[in-house]
């Protein structure tokens, strides 16, 4: 049973199959993401009511919170696929991990900067060394460390192994980010959605937040697949299927 499951996984994780299947999926994810992001932005910017305490400044939440969620989610994907690559030697898992890193770094950067832009009018400071902010900054350094490590090691398999270990060790930071607002007295406000109680956010504000969160997630899937396909194509450049693919594309161009 286990053997046949692994055979199935190895089959679909083969570069050729992955390339074909992901090529079909990307447009769906991309268009759905675009739709959700447009709807969420319009809802968040113009339709959701003004916050009684923070005025219109709270509208930054619809970018800030989904970006922060993604920064942690992508890290978990990166660490998990790194571990899968380490244990089962599935190359595609390493490709997913390394394709995720820059996207995760971008979302972490966005979460930090939009948080800073929100912090200035609300707290009166662009930056404070608060537990939540500091832990998120460490997350950015973990992503950048992953990318630097990958670039520094020439042998791609050794690089993937080292990066996977770094990613796995760094997972310790994720619960620290999440619980930082409970464990320490922070300036950062507590959770309003991701807690065991009912979300303490009104439905009219929750809907655009969830639209944006889902849009960000689908955006990530689309972009990580495009990045992974590029890597697969490049590393498999000496195999027959890539040669055929490129040649058939060229014939299309020359025949026009």
């Amino acid at each position: 049973m286990f053997k046949s499951i692994m055979k199935f996984i190895y089959h679909f994780a083969s570069p050729k199959h992955f390339y074909r299947l992901s090529g079909k999926l990307i447009p769906w994810f991309a268009w759905l993401a675009a739709l959700l992001l447009i709807a969420g932005s319009i809802d968040g910017l113009f339709i959701a009511p003004v916050d009684y305490q923070q005025g219109d400044s709270y509208r930054i939440i619809f970018v800030h919170v989904p970006a922060a969620w993604m920064s942690m989610f992508i890290y978990m994907v990166m660490a998990t696929s790194g571990a899968i690559g380490l244990i089962w030697k599935i190359k595609l898992a390493d490709v997913i991990a390394s394709s995720s890193a820059p996207i995760g770094a971008a979302f972490t950067f966005l979460a930090l900067v939009t948080g800073s832009i929100w912090g200035k009018p609300m707290w009166g400071a662009w930056w404070v060394w608060d537990a939540r902010l500091t832990a998120e900054l460490i997350l950015l350094f973990l992503y950048l460390g992953f990318m630097a490590l990958e670039a520094a090691i020439e042998d791609p398999r050794a690089a993937a192994r080292a990066c996977a270990i770094l990613a796995i060790v760094g997972v310790i930071n994720i619960p620290i980010i999440h619980y930082s607002v409970e464990w320490w007295n922070t300036l950062h406000q507590g959770a309003t959605v991701t807690k065991f109680d009912k979300p303490s956010i009104h439905i009219s504000m929750l809907i655009p937040l969830l639209l944006m969160a889902l849009g960000f997630k689908l955006y990530y899937v689309a972009v990580v697949l495009v990045r992974a396909r590029n890597k697969v194509l490049y590393t498999d450049q000496n195999s027959g299927w890539v040669k055929e693919l490129i040649k058939s594309k060229n014939e299309q161009f020359t025949s026009i």
Partner: peptide, 30 residues
């Protein structure tokens, strides 16, 4: 946006720029 226009719009604008770049760079690479 009340008195917060600059903050709100710069946040959304930055998100658009960063996410646009992250999405289009790999398409150019391809």
């Amino acid at each position: 946006m009340g008195k917060y226009g600059a903050y709100v719009w710069s946040s959304y604008g930055l998100a658009l720029i960063v996410m646009g770049y992250v999405a289009f760079k790999p398409l150019m690479d391809k």
